[in-house]
Amino acid sequence: MKEHGFWRLGGKLYLAALVVFTMLPMVWMVITSLKTQFAALQYPPEWIPRNPTLDQYWLLLSPANAVGREFLRYLFNSVWVSAASTVLGVAVAVPAAYAFSRFRFPGRNLLFYSVLLRNMFPAVVFLMPLFIMMRWLGLVNTQASLILTYLTFGLPLSIWLLKGFYDNIPVQLEQAARIDGASRFQAFLLIVMPLSAPGITATAIYSFIMAWNEYVYALTFLNDKDRLTLPVGLQRFFTEYATNWPGLMAASFIMSVPVVALFLVLQKYFVRALTDGAVKS
């Protein structure tokens, strides 16, 4: 029993240290975002802002000024690009994942492994040829180019996650449906689809977050100020207002809020989606 207590205490101390390590940057981000520019550039730093202010947030989120309009534009672009690529990716991934989970057609393994292997390739390998392709298609500097290229990671990922969900739906349900008079496709549509709704939601949100956070493609394909997504917009912001750390921290905070909120709400699905494949065997 004594030994047990020793390990538990160690675990608690370790977790406490880890929480400090995890939270410190985030806490400092929020604290800084509440300071004036002058207060931020102090040494030693003001640990607790003496005159907290929401000015930076008003600046960023108010359409009344140029900075706000710009930032809201980025925000809107990010929502649009992430949502469009998510919807497209999931729509294409659902039938494919279902087929990989259920059917044993020749070439299935080869195809599925190549889907898996995509996860291994760095974005940069795809960057140059896709850039050339987009130039050729006349899509450089359009959001369509991003929506399309986000499928390079969104699609394989969605297929993999969804296949995990379908694997967990007993195949007997479809067999029962087919015996009850449904065709293969009806069994999929009427029985499996409603059951996989949570899986599809989780997959969609995961792929939304990936797209929301994506940086390299957005950096390379877009240069028109009006079309930038948030990550690139943030960087632009930084070059333009190099010393406005509170503004930058406020922008980072605003950018992080939606994904962190989505994530925490759906934590359970997420953790399952992430780990499903790895612990199954």
């Binding site: 995890t22 940057p25 981000m29 956070n213 943030l234 930058l248 980072s252 905070f253 950018m255 994530f263």
Partner: peptide
């Protein structure tokens, strides 16, 4: 403890 994983790498880098 999971938050850093979902935060945008860009935002994290600036922070």
């Amino acid at each position: 403890l999971l938050i850093p994983y979902v935060i945008s790498a860009v935002a994290a880098s600036y922070v």
